[in-house]
Design a protein around this nucleic acid. Structure first.
Lengths: 135, 135
DNA sequence: TTTACTGTAATATTTATTATTACAGATGAA
DNA sequence: TTCATCTGTAATAATAAATATTACAGTAAA
């Protein structure tokens, strides 16, 4: 996984802390300490996935699109992961070698198993759970 | 995780296929289709961890340092992972924000949990198991 | 003493990530 | 109506990480 998971989780946690009022990308970016455009980009992704609502224009900003107890860390994980956790087997091994010939397939199967296990755990933790750890 | 896991797993799987004879880095690199120096670098790491034995000089090469059923994928995982699977929370969030102040710690705790789960699964699969999937 | 290996460092190249800049479009308020 | 403030998004630049390459010293067998 990459640095997007912490960022997405941070964003959603912040939003869960303010029920009604809209939060700006500047504020969010300031809390995470990243560039506002980068924050907006990730928010955009999260919005496309139905996790965040936005309002444009003056005094616009963001809120959660659903209750914090209805968003799990599995949603976050899937939002930011383009590839399986353990990375992709991106070698092109020698097809004349019995091992090389099949190893990518076998590694993919393993990764699928591991992903399932991770998702199960992540699916058991909601944003509400996570956010409740903070003061 | 990065591309090193597939490479290390490939190497150990290959070695498990030849009981006694030594295998050269050229052959190994050829099967994986990577540079021999890169293969030797990973092998060197695996050797330092007691998973591979090597012999220098003419007709030198590599063998497993222990039986394939005594090496698990958790060993491989730990050999190649310097960081937790999900990456490190490497932002330096705003310490004046209650969330920013503590989020790295909380994310680290989560990652530790997830790592444990992955290691449990990986620890249940040996190189022998994995290699037996191949013809 | 030549040949075929490993061991390792130094460096180059490529790829991925992250940051920055810029600006059009939307909305509310003076 | 026009100004200020915000989102949305693209284009680009900068940085960091992964991977590949080259080179060669050291070791051991023949």
């Amino acid at each position: 996984m990459n640095g997007r998971f912490p960022i997405a989780l941070h964003i959603l946690t912040l939003l869960s802390k303010t029920e009604e009022e809209l939060m700006s990308s500047d504020y969010i970016a300031g809390s995470i300490n990243i560039n506002p455009a980068l924050a907006r980009k990730e928010i955009s992704n999260l919005r496309n996935l139905g996790l965040i609502s936005s309002k444009e224009g003056k005094s616009g900003g963001y809120t959660l699109a659903k209750a914090a107890e209805q968003i799990t860390l599995a949603d976050v994980y899937q939002a930011v992961m383009s590839q399986p956790v353990l990375g992709v087997a991106k070698n092109t091994p020698n097809p004349d070698c019995p091992v090389g010939k099949q190893i990518n397939k076998k590694i993919d199967e393993l990764y699928t198993d591991l992903d399932k296990i991770l998702l199960k755990k992540l699916g058991s933790i909601t944003i509400e759970d996570f956010a409740n750890q903070f003061d």
